[in-house]
Design a protein around this nucleic acid. Structure first.
Lengths: 207, 207
DNA sequence: GTTGACATACCAACTGGTTGGTATGTTGCA
DNA sequence: TGCAACATACCAACCAGTTGGTATGTCAAC
């Protein structure tokens, strides 16, 4: 969901990646519709010709930005150290703790491109909406294994692992909205702590 | 958050209210930036002169739409029958049940104007962002009394009433995003059921 | 190892339509 | 007759997208 701080990642030299990173930055701060192609090019330090060489349309850039976002976030979470914890309950809570740790600074540095874009696209662009869905649902799918194992270990059968994984994404996305509403990082973190308490209670852990 | 179905509410005859209702409809479906003044006027059945007679700018319409939204939703929830329940725990859960009951049909019929608009406005329009914040935080404030009473009755002192009230709004807002991501009303309702389970556990109730 | 055919990556200038906003009426009621 | 509530006509700026071009490569034929 958030873009990980990758301090040693080289800045892109080709126009396509420069545009995708500019898109992530501007969409997070202003949204998709309010970001013009000219602004995108200026932010990326690239001309309009380069834009339409790499992307058929502004909508195509939107799809590519969502895909780019998916790829960077899923790669980041796949490498996170909480996967190495033995107890599946620890892994589930470890994911939440990681999400909490990632929330800091200005809202546009930890908010989600897919969640932001889908609000504007869900009725106006089926392709962008599908790419956003893929991003967030992909995140949820990566959790299902650990959640299912944790539920089984604790002999809980009331909510399903799928339902819980999606609920986790719900709280994360809701936290971003509340942060934008003025609560900032503190508000988003606080809601994740409620989610953590809920999961801990469900999975037989004290908070 | 959602616009209540008020079947016997007379359709507005003046241009100002027609524009505000058109704004609620279009912003919910397409967002603020992607909705042009011309589209607003067409949807309202009103001319551009009327628009700029009643609103100084498009931004001013945005602020007025958020205020209009605040007024209709807070009036609706103030009249809801769950307030008459004796037990404060029942009133808290009654609010959640009402929110669940209100979620049905297409996403743009139950989603939140303030939550949608703030995503586009939080960095580009301080006045719109403030109006959106007022709307959602106003909703949260209306819950604090019941939550505080329920926490006290159950001798719970870990999360504060304020924090819980805001968390409730977080899950509601997150549910709207997940619904737009393709989950529809079912997804939003499912997350509110998780929230209900959390509150029930906190407040000493079985689910 | 030079040449020609082709592809990729990019650029500056332009276009037609749309944007938010204005200037100037008209109407109907107090 | 004065004023609020509208309507009509218009504008400059900006919008997404197109154009015709250049610079730089790749690669096979000779």
């Amino acid at each position: 969901m958030m873009i990980p701080n990758q301090p040693f990642r080289a800045p892109p030299t080709n126009a396509r990646e420069k545009l995708l990173e500019a898109a992530v930055r501007l969409i997070r701060a202003r949204g998709f519709a309010a970001t013009s192609v000219d602004q995108l090019c200026a932010e990326a330090g690239v001309t309009k010709g380069a834009f339409f060489h790499h992307f058929r349309s502004k909508e195509a850039l939107g799809v590519a930005a969502a895909d780019y976002w998916s790829a960077s976030t899923s790669a980041f979470f796949a490498l996170a150290p909480y996967h190495r914890l033995e107890d599946p309950v620890d892994r589930v809570l470890g994911y939440i703790d990681l999400r909490i740790a990632l929330i800091s600074g200005p809202v546009e540095s930890f908010s989600c491109v897919a969640g932001t874009m889908v609000q504007e696209a869900f009725r106006t662009s089926a392709v962008i909406a599908a790419a956003c869905r893929e991003s967030v649902y992909g995140n949820a799918k990566a959790l299902i294994g650990d959640i299912a194992a944790a539920l089984e270990q604790q002999a809980v059968n009331e909510p399903t692992a799928e339902s819980l994984a999606l609920h986790i994404q719900t709280v994360i996305q809701g936290g971003f909205i509340m942060a934008k509403l003025g609560g900032g990082a503190d508000m988003a973190r606080d809601s994740l702590l409620h989610l953590r308490r809920y999961l801990a209670m469900l999975l037989g852990r004290g908070f």
